[in-house]
Design a protein around this nucleic acid. Sequence first.
DNA 1: TCTTGACCTAGAGTGCGCTCTAGCAGCTAA
DNA 2: TTAGCTGCTAGAGCGCACTCTAGGTCAAGA
Lengths: 139, 139
Amino acid sequence: MKIGDLSRHCGLSIHSIRYYEKIGLLPPAHRDAGGRRQYSMEIAGWLSFLKSLKATGMGISDMVRYAQLREMGPQTARERRQMLERQRIKVLRQIDTLKATLPVLDTKIETYLDLEKASMMEADHEQQTNTIPLVGRAK
Amino acid sequence: MKIGDLSRHCGLSIHSIRYYEKIGLLPPAHRDAGGRRQYSMEIAGWLSFLKSLKATGMGISDMVRYAQLREMGPQTARERRQMLERQRIKVLRQIDTLKATLPVLDTKIETYLDLEKASMMEADHEQQTNTIPLVGRAK
DNA sequence: TCTTGACCTAGAGTGCGCTCTAGCAGCTAA
DNA sequence: TTAGCTGCTAGAGCGCACTCTAGGTCAAGA
């Protein structure tokens, strides 16, 4: 699998894949005779997990740290687990923060709906009673 | 209320308050004789709403657009309401995305716990049977 | 009066996470 | 064999959202 295939497969740009390798999120790729990166299917699973980590809001530096621990092998299991547990808590907090915005939005939306209804009724009233001259309404 | 008071009150840095004014999130502040910004308590409500918008993940440019509509008065109620309704949908989507990461994290955490348990049992076994010489264990 | 501290402006700098450019090499199909 | 595609590297550039600096003004308390 060449970098273009991986790019199409995982939905990351070729630039981003090389960038991920450069900063240490991806292990240095094997190269073919011409120096091009060769990927096995296995890397797609790792990239997919990285996407999940990114979706949790984990920053690049933490993801790099995690990737380094992964490279070190099973004796880093405990530290990796602790990272994930901390991230889990952050996810729950983010969900709470987002949920807390909903009533704020809903209240405002309601207010605007009332305002729009009121201004429509006003317009109706103006039309029925002709309190405003045509020239004023045309404006 | 001077800018320092407002900063302490709303938890934004003085720099950020001036920045918000510069980009149009805050209306140009009234100035005292010496040219210093003077704020009324009213602005705190607007800043608090801006914080909510920010917490929804709304970008600066959208927030500036919203602020401009607010300046234009009640005839922009409909457009502002539509912006908030769109943002509400984005918030729900973000919550879903975050929630979807939880099972991924949980599965990994479980895997690591199993791995840690297994490696601990292995260590116990080694201790009981003395399969590894002291010099090896000390390492 | 002098000093301190809060405030002012314009503009530079920062950290993040990409994203793109320039200039070149190598494989492949017509 | 030649065109075109894909790949390579080093490094520049970008958009966001601040954050800070330099160099000043101004008002009030010791």
